[in-house]
């Protein structure tokens, strides 16, 4: 399978605190890759670096044979989208939230309307367009954020804990959605929820204390983890 993104020895320090260390892996086109690890392991930081919201302290990210930098990235940003763990919403209507990325990309009014409505349908929020986004329930807000990330059909979708804070019904809606993206979009999901990862992932990467300790197919990681620490984590010994 083709590689869409190549992380090379990525490290991140905040002041003197090392949050990520020497992290290298490839993201393959069309796959669903889950990054698992306990809280504070560095998953969010890693996704933010991949979304170019933050500079890494060491290493580089290669996209289409080009090393990415934070400040020459508008083109990359238009093709890669991230949804945050804490849902962030514009103080606008649901429709305007979802339409934002399309408007930025200069789609015609009709096209914006058509695609936005389709995206809202796909997250079971048809007819919610005129509502104020901030007034929706947590699960609905999360789905608005997802629709908004999906509507621009990004090549790479980075989801940070998309099912944390959700009830089981909403979790299965979101998981179905992610599974349906398989083959169309490359998805990287950061999660501390192993069951969630097990249900959706093609491949799984495990980070502990800012270090990538294991990466492999879902089956390999869950059934035959190579690293002792992965085994412990999978068994729940870190919780």
């Amino acid at each position: 399978m083709a590689t869409i993104l190549k992380l090379k020895k990525i490290g991140k320090k905040y002041d003197e605190k090392t949050v990520l260390r020497n992290t290298s892996f490839d993201v393959k086109k069309g796959e669903i890759l889950c990054i698992i690890g306990p809280n504070g392991a560095g998953k969010t930081t890693l996704l933010r670096i991949m979304a170019l919201l933050e500079n890494s302290s060491n290493g580089e990210i290669v996209h289409e044979n080009k090393v990415l930098k934070v400040y020459d990235d508008v083109n990359y940003r238009k093709r890669v989208t991230m949804a945050f763990q804490q849902t962030a919403l514009f103080r606008k209507t649901v429709f305007d939230n979802v339409a934002y990325g399309l408007k930025i990309r200069g789609y015609s009014k009709d096209e914006v309307k058509k695609r936005t409505e389709r995206a809202l349908e796909s997250v079971n929020l048809g007819g919610f367009g005129k509502r104020k986004a901030k007034k929706l329930s947590g699960g609905e807000q999360q789905r608005v954020a997802l629709a908004r990330a999906l509507v621009t059909e990004p090549e790479l979708l980075l989801l940070d804990e998309p099912t944390a804070n959700l009830d089981p019904a909403n979790i299965s809606v979101v998981e179905d959605l992610i599974r349906n993206l398989k083959g169309k979009t490359t998805v990287v999901v950061a999660t501390h929820n192993l069951f969630h990862a097990h249900r959706i992932a093609d491949r799984v990467a495990c980070i502990l204390d800012g270090e990538l300790i294991d990466i492999g197919t879902t089956k390999e990681i869950f059934s035959h983890p190579k690293d002792k620490r992965t085994k412990k984590f999978i068994r729940g010994e870190f919780f």
Partner: peptide, 11 residues
């Protein structure tokens, strides 16, 4: 996070 949000949506 609004600023980051806009950026991740291609701004």
């Amino acid at each position: 996070s609004i600023r980051d949000l806009a950026k991740t949506l291609g701004a």
